[in-house]
Nucleic acid binder design. Structure first.
Length: 482
RNA sequence: GCCUCAGUAGCUCAGCAGGUUAGAGCGGCGGACUGUUAAUCCGUAGGUCGUAGGUUCGAGCCCUACCUGAGGCGCCA
C-alpha cells in the first residue's frame, strides 16, 4: 500500500518532547529564522517552540539555500543531535532539504520583527504563523475541548440548536435577516409590506442570537444539556469586546435554581482556565512574557497589577465574590468615586450597572471575579424568574476584570401565569412562542442556565486586548474579509 | 450610533513657527561570516506624506469634507 507524506513526518512538538540522539527524522514546517546561513528555526504549528535545524551549506546548492527565507515551507531530513548552542537541547543536522513552498521576501508581507495587531489583522490569512497568534489559537482549541470535556464528564448532552431561527422574540439584540427573496423585486402584500410567506421557509427568518430557548426544550427532556455554537448580533458595536459573529456556550439544566446556576458558572470557568494552565503552559508563558514586554514601555499606573499567569492562577484558586444587585448599588453609593462624583452615570436602584460601575466592583473593590444576582425585573429579559419580592428577577452576571461581563444567565420562569404576565408587560408576542409556553404547560420544571461568550473567555485567558485577535476570522461592522 | 485620537518608505515611527533635494531603525537587495538565538558587520535601493477640495508667494504641517484604523461609551456575551 502506498504511504502518504505524513508517514515520513515527525511532529516537532513530539520530537522535542521525546527523542533519541542519533535517530533520523524528517520534519516539515515554516522557517521562522535563518541565521548565519547555518541555523534554521523551524516551526510546524504543533508548539510555540522552534526546532533548530543546522545546515552545512557546502552540502547544498546555493539556489536551494536562497529559498530558505522567512515563512517558506520546507521539509528537512536529518539526524537528531545534542545542540552545541545554548537556546535548545537538541537540533537536527540537515541531510536533505526539500522546498515545499518558497516565500519571496521581496513581496511577503510579514517580517521577523514586532508588528502591530492592527497590521496583522489585515493579514489574517498569514497571522496564524506568528508566535502570538499560533499560541492564541492553540489555547482557543484547548479551551473549546475543555468545554466539551467539562460537560461530558458531568453528564450533560451537547445539543445543536438551530443557526437559522424563525422567532425574532429572543430579545438579545438586532438580528441578521436570512432570505432567498430577490432583493430587487420583493413580493409585497396588499398593505405594501413584504410578503415573507413567499420566502424559503414560508416566514421571515434570522440568524440566531441565542440557543437558550431551544436549550430549554432540551433541558426539560434530557435534564442537563449545553449548546456550543456560533451566534450572531447585528448590533453596530465598535468595541474591543464585541463581535457580530461569536461563539457561545449555553448550558441549560432542569432542577437548577439560581444558586446551582452560579456554582456551575464558577466551576465551569475555573475548569477551562485550569485545563489550559495544565496543557498549554508554554503558550501561556510566551503570552505572559509578551504582555510584560509590552508593559515595559507603559507608565506604571497603566500596567496590570498581576501578570497573566498570576491572574489565571489567582482566579482558579479563589472563590468568586457573590453579591446581589441591591448590595452592589449600596457599595457603589458608598464608594469613593461616587462621593467624588467621578462616575459619569448615576447609581440608582432600578437602572442597570454601567461598565464603569462593574469595573469598580471587580477591579478596585473586590479585585476578583464577581457574580451579581437578582437584578430589577424591568431591565432584564422576560424569561427570567420573578423573585418573591416582585421587584427583582433571578438573573446573574459573572463579571471579570478587564473584559466585564463574561456570563449572563438566570433561573427561568417556569410558572405559566407569571410568564404570560411578563410577556404581556414587555410586549412579547405569546402566539409566536407557543411552544415555549407549552414547556411550562406540560411537565414544566424549575430550571436555569447561562451563556458564556467564548471569545471573551479566550481573551481573558490569553490576555489579548482586542476580541478580534482571539477569533481567526473576525466579523465586525464593516468587515467580513477572509 | 455617539465622542476622542491617528493615517509620512514593506513595517514601526520622527519631522517644523507653514520655507530649498522628506529622515531613522527594522525589513528587502548585494557582500562578509561555520555555533547562531529578533545573529552580527559593510554597502545599497526604496516615498503622489490616506483621498478630494480650499487658504497661502509657498502646505507633510493650517481649514473643510470623505475614507480607513484605534481607544472610549451605549447595546450585550
Amino acid at each position: 500500500m502506498q504511504q502518504g507524506i505524513d508517514s515520513r513526518r515527525t511532529v516537532i512538538a513530539k520530537l522535542l518532547d521525546h527523542h533519541e540522539i542519533g535517530q533520523t527524522v524528517e520534519v516539515m514546517g515554516w522557517v521562522r529564522a535563518f541565521r548565519g546561513n547555518q541555523f534554521i528555526a523551524l516551526n510546524d504549528g504543533s508548539t510555540i517552540n522552534n526546532l533548530q535545524v543546522v545546515v552545512d551549506y557546502d552540502r547544498f546548492p546555493e539556489s536551494l539555500i536562497k529559498q530558505i527565507t522567512f515563512h517558506a515551507c520546507i521539509a528537512v531530513k536529518g539526524k537528531v543531535a545534542p545542540s552545541k548552542g545554548a537556546g535548545q537541547a537538541i537540533e537536527v543536522s540537515a541531510e536533505s532539504i526539500e522546498i515545499f513552498g518558497a516565500a519571496n521576501p521581496e513581496t511577503y508581507p510579514l517580517q521577523p520583527k514586532h508588528q502591530t495587531m492592527e497590521f496583522l489583522r489585515e493579514k489574517a490569512h498569514l497571522r496564524m504563523r506568528t508566535n502570538t497568534f499560533s499560541a492564541v489559537f492553540r489555547i482557543r482549541h484547548a479551551a473549546a475541548f475543555a468545554v466539551h470535556k467539562f460537560y461530558n464528564d458531568r453528564g450533560y448532552y451537547y445539543l445543536h440548536t438551530p443557526i437559522i431561527t424563525g422567532s425574532d422574540a429572543e430579545g438579545a439584540g438586532e438580528m441578521f435577516r436570512v432570505t432567498t427573496l430577490d432583493l430587487q423585486n420583493l413580493p409585497k402584500q396588499e398593505t405594501g409590506s413584504i410578503d415573507w410567506s413567499q420566502d424559503f421557509f414560508g416566514k421571515a427568518t434570522n440568524l440566531t442570537v441565542s440557543g437558550q430557548l431551544q436549550g430549554e426544550i432540551g433541558a426539560l427532556a434530557l435534564g442537563k444539556v449545553y449548546t456550543f455554537g456560533p451566534t450572531f448580533r447585528a448590533e453596530n458595536s465598535n468595541t474591543s469586546r464585541h463581535l457580530a459573529e461569536f461563539w457561545m456556550i449555553e448550558p441549560e439544566v432542569a432542577f437548577f435554581d439560581i444558586y446551582d446556576n452560579m456554582q456551575l458558572a464558577e466551576d465551569f470557568v475555573k475548569y477551562i482556565i485550569k485545563y489550559v494552565l495544565e496543557h498549554h503552559a508554554d503558550d501561556l508563558a510566551f503570552l505572559d512574557q509578551r504582555i510584560k514586554d509590552a508593559e515595559k514601555q507603559m507608565k506604571a499606573e497603566e500596567r496590570r497589577e498581576m501578570g497573566l499567569l498570576e491572574t489565571l492562577n489567582f482566579v482558579v484558586s479563589n472563590d468568586f465574590e457573590r453579591i446581589t444587585y441591591t448590595e452592589a448599588v449600596e457599595l457603589l453609593r458608598n464608594s469613593t468615586p461616587y462621593k467624588k462624583k467621578k462616575f459619569k452615570f448615576p447609581v440608582e436602584w432600578g437602572s442597570d450597572l454601567q461598565a464603569e460601575h462593574e469595573r469598580w466592583l471587580v477591579e478596585k473593590h473586590f479585585k476578583k471575579p464577581v457574580i451579581v444576582r437578582n437584578y430589577p425585573k424591568d431591565i432584564k429579559a422576560f424569561y427570567m424568574r420573578l423573585n418573591d419580592d416582585n421587584k427583582t428577577v433571578a438573573a446573574m452576571d459573572v463579571l471579570f476584570p478587564g473584559i466585564g461581563e463574561v456570563i449572563g444567565g438566570s433561573q427561568r420562569e417556569e410558572r405559566t401565569d407569571v410568564l404570560l404576565q411578563r410577556m404581556a408587560d414587555m410586549h412579547i408576542p405569546a402566539e409566536e412562542l407557543w411552544w415555549y409556553l407549552e414547556l411550562r404547560k406540560f411537565g414544566g420544571a424549575p430550571h436555569a442556565g447561562f451563556g458564556l461568550g467564548f471569545e471573551r473567555m479566550v481573551q481573558f485567558i490569553t490576555g489579548m486586548g482586542n476580541i478580534r485577535d482571539v477569533i481567526a476570522f473576525p466579523r465586525t461592522p464593516g468587515n467580513a474579509e477572509f
